[in-house]
Computed example of a mutant assay.
Amino acid sequence: MNRGFTLLELLITLVVLALLLSWAAPSYQSVTESSKMKRLAAELHGIVLLGKSQAVLRRERLWAHVIMPGVSSADGQWKIELTDNETPGSGDVLQIIDGVGFRELVVEVGYASNQISFDDVHGRPSSGNIKFHPIARADQKLKLISHTQSARVRVCSDSDNNEIFYGFALCNE
């Protein structure tokens, strides 16, 4: 007696597997996208907090230089360097965020001269923002905001229709 699978049984199995994969693939993409957004938010927030604390600890002015080819990037060809020199690419580098791990996310910089400066007395960052969102979901923006006067730094959902994205509060609250 021959044991094995018939061609019909194999085809049915393949159809069922294809249906399961087509159902699971968008869910997997959404999870990885959400993970990238949360990780970038945490890293941006972390480098600004590090800049504030290191400026006070060292008692010297520090800069976080956003280095990218234009005002925005979606291909991961950007980086942020926290340094002790006003000129990008010079001085001692204290911390780096590399955009390679954040491909498929659009990053837009809203700081003068694409840099965040931290004063040497209170560590206050310059005012500005960095917006970021998945390429396919321009309506789901997160924004890192810093204010010089209050020295406040936060990440929030930048939504026109008051939606909360990735667990971050609205920027206008």
Results as ranks from 00 to 15, higher is better:
E173W: 03
V71N: 13
V71L: 13
K143L: 15
L94Y: 13
E81C: 02
F165H: 15
R154Y: 13
F5R: 11
L11W: 08
S159I: 07
R152M: 15
L8W: 14
E86D: 09
V16G: 10
H122N: 14
F5C: 08
L14T: 12
C171P: 01
Q140E: 15
N161Y: 03
A151V: 12
W23E: 00
S73V: 13
N2F: 12
C171K: 06
R59Q: 15
A136C: 02
G110S: 08
L57S: 15
K79W: 07
F102H: 07
A64N: 02
V107S: 02
S35M: 11
G101D: 14
G128A: 13
K36I: 04
P125Y: 02
A25G: 04
G123A: 13
D92K: 14
G99M: 08
A18F: 07
G123Q: 05
F102E: 02
N129V: 04
G110M: 01
L50W: 00
F118A: 10
G101W: 00
V15L: 15
D119H: 14
L20G: 15
N129A: 13
L20H: 01
S113T: 14
Q149A: 15
E60P: 03
K131D: 15
V121G: 09
P134R: 01
D84K: 08
G167I: 11
I145F: 06
S127Q: 13
F5E: 04
R124A: 10
K131H: 10
F5M: 13
V107N: 04
T83G: 01
Q77W: 08
N114P: 01
G128L: 02
G46E: 12
R124G: 09
S113R: 12
G101H: 13
L14W: 02
N85F: 03
L10H: 02
M1I: 09
S126H: 08
C171W: 03
E86V: 13
R3D: 11
E81K: 00
S126C: 01
S150L: 15
S53V: 05
C171I: 07
V107L: 14
E108H: 08
I164D: 11
L40S: 02
S146G: 12
Q115N: 03
V155G: 01
G4S: 11
T6D: 09
Q140L: 04
S113I: 01
G76Q: 05
Q115C: 06
E173L: 05
V56D: 03
D120R: 14
I67W: 07
R103P: 00
V106F: 05
I97W: 05
A74V: 00
L50A: 14
W23P: 01
